[in-house]
């Protein structure tokens, strides 16, 4: 059974233009997949739809065989592109908050990751830098034992050293039963951790898919170089 199944998804924001137009996608278990595409092509819309935060106009989305809804929130761990926590909360409060909310949350793991990144649980969120807030959010999301992780730009705001640590954490979290879908513009950084990539053009059209190593073998280009080529001219998108 596929961890994620999208069938003939349509989504518009009422502007007469489809952000996702007849989009279909299947992801099996045990993969780390990069969802790569230009700004505004529908990556975040797709993630929000899979997370159950947006309703598609039509089409079906299911996670581990269950149609997206209340039940799938227990299966999906979603990292939004923006932080949504209340700034008066302390980091430690958030760990408890997540432990209350999600049965699959591992507080011990979260505390270990926080200490590795020298984040003090007694600090209030408002006292943290933007990058540190992003690290906290990623730690919370990765400390769940979910079937599907949706990471929307997980490393964009953090320094290169933390980026490495975060990518190692993602790899260390690898589990044959779960799948991780990552969007990013930092393709060169993320390429080594991916099993597969998807190039998404406008309206959610999948233009190219495969493994990064196959791209290198067949075209002699890195994924980053191929991305620049595929999305260079707007006629292709």
């Amino acid at each position: 059974m596929n961890v994620l199944e999208c069938k003939n998804l349509y989504k518009s924001y009422g502007t007469g233009r489809y952000v996702l137009e007849n989009m279909s996608l299947s992801l099996p278990a045990g993969r780390i997949v990069g969802l790569l595409g230009p700004n505004g092509c529908g990556k975040s819309t797709l993630m929000k739809t899979v997370a159950g935060l947006l309703m598609p106009d039509s089409g079906a989305v299911s996670v581990a065989g269950t149609p997206v809804g209340e039940e799938t929130k227990a299966l999906v761990s979603y990292l939004p592109e923006r932080t949504y926590f209340n700034s008066w909360m302390r980091v430690g409060d958030l760990v408890e908050y997540f432990a209350d909310f999600y049965r699959d949350f591992d507080s011990g793991k979260a505390k270990g990751l926080l200490s590795d990144l020298h984040i003090d649980p007694s600090d209030r969120l408002k006292s943290l830098s933007k990058g540190t807030k992003e690290k906290v959010q990623l730690i919370l999301v990765m400390s769940r034992r979910a079937r599907l992780y949706l990471l929307d730009e997980p490393i964009a705001g953090v320094d290169p050293a933390a980026r490495e640590y975060i990518l190692s954490t993602i790899v260390g979290n690898y589990d044959p039963d779960s799948t991780i879908l990552i969007t990013t513009h930092l393709i060169a950084d993320v390429e080594p951790v991916l099993d597969e990539f998807l190039f998404m053009g406008y309206s959610g059209k999948i233009l190219r898919a495969g493994t990064a190593d196959a791209v290198r073998e067949e075209t002699g280009m890195s994924l980053d170089a191929l991305f620049r080529e595929v999305f260079r001219c707007s006629a292709n998108c």
């Binding site: 790899v171 260390g172 690898y174 080594p192 951790v193 099993d195 190593d213």
Partner: peptide, 17 residues
Amino acid sequence: VRQLAVTAAVNPNTVQR
């Protein structure tokens, strides 16, 4: 393989290959 993957920050399937 798993330990190498975490050290190198590389996909475990790539290390396995």
